[in-house]
Design a protein around this nucleic acid. Structure first.
Lengths: 184, 184
DNA sequence: ATAAAAATTTCATCATCATGCAGATTGCAT
DNA sequence: ATGCAATCTGCATGATGATGAAATTTTTAT
């Protein structure tokens, strides 16, 4: 019964695609996937993964992966559920600077969004690094900004892309500083 | 006795400059500064500040400010404590590479430093991501390196800035690549 | 100023999480 | 295979955190 190694990636997957608010809840999700463990073990697993519980916008709590470094070496490959239908509701704003795309999200959703970007397996994205409410996406040097605009338009709300459009098409820019607006 | 407004900034200050591992511990620190409150109140305060407990490198836990941008009514923001007085003692070194500024801190202080950078609300900074002992700050494309030097000089020890000066003023540089090192 | 509404806090308690310890499993070197 | 060390796990329990209800203060609107 030493399943930790295979279990941890599953936990990461569950946490990034579901809103898990307690270890008991996580335990149930794991059970569905064939991993039967107690809360005690999960406490250790979560400590190891450096996950943490944060307050969500709507009253509750949610576990997130607090640590960064999971460049797209895809240890747990393309799993089943993902966004894929499109339009990521957790995104608040997007900006471009050099070879980085910076996406602000509602608190706790950065990991999930970064994961979803990875799953696109786009040649334009080398890798992502999620924080608590910010995602850094490293862009391929040879990619055109128009490519990036298309890419992110495919899953970020149109409204957010519209605000950021001038960053993807500088030549059209009207002038005026980038407005990164955080509303809470 | 409705001190929450004045208490929250103090909590932020305590959390960013100390290693607090429990609400009881925070309660004691607050008491020293004249704020007598129960654990129940702190639970609500911390939820409001969206702080969270994370596993530290060795064994324990520590509360950090998970979010970078808070309630828009900014009850504290540019208030008393925190940065302002200048000179962030947790910083160890700073470097620039492309549109990224990389700051090394003493272990566990990256979150606090990133928070302080966010609080500057500088137009030169698009966003930050703290690791355990490293902060990545993404710089606005239109910002000059001299702007960045001024910005960081305002709250990083002069000695550190002096060492990094050649990175902010390449024309004066002697040569030498930026070392972006992530150690975990 | 006064009443009503909202916000803040504590108390008491329930819920959740962390961990020492013992038993079990695995890996590795005889 | 055997023994030993390291890893993993559950159990039981202590530690820590969250929250309903009631009391008190602050704010807001007459």
């Amino acid at each position: 019964m030493k399943k930790r190694k295979s279990r941890l990636p599953v936990i990461v997957d569950i946490l990034t695609h579901n809103s898990i608010g307690s270890q008991e809840e996580l335990s149930k999700q794991l059970a569905i996937r064939g991993y039967i463990v107690t809360q005690a073990t999960l406490s250790r697993d979560l400590k190891m993964l450096r996950t943490t519980k944060v307050a969500t916008d709507m009253g509750g709590y949610r576990y997130i992966i607090a640590d960064s470094s999971h460049l797209s070496n895809e240890p747990y490959a393309k799993s089943q559920n993902t966004v894929q239908s499109g339009l990521h509701p957790a995104a608040l704003s997007v900006g471009v600077s050099g070879n980085l795309v910076v996406i602000k999200t509602r608190n706790g959703y950065a990991s999930g969004l970064a994961y979803d970007i990875d799953m696109l397996e786009s040649p334009h994205i080398l890798g992502t690094i999620p924080g608590a409410d910010t995602v850094f996406a490293v862009v391929n040097e040879t990619s055109e900004r128009s490519d990036l605009f298309s890419l992110f338009s495919s899953f970020l709300p149109q409204q957010i892309m519209a605000v950021a459009r001038h960053q993807f098409f500088p030549e059209e820019a009207v002038r005026g500083d980038v407005e990164i607006k955080d509303d809470y």
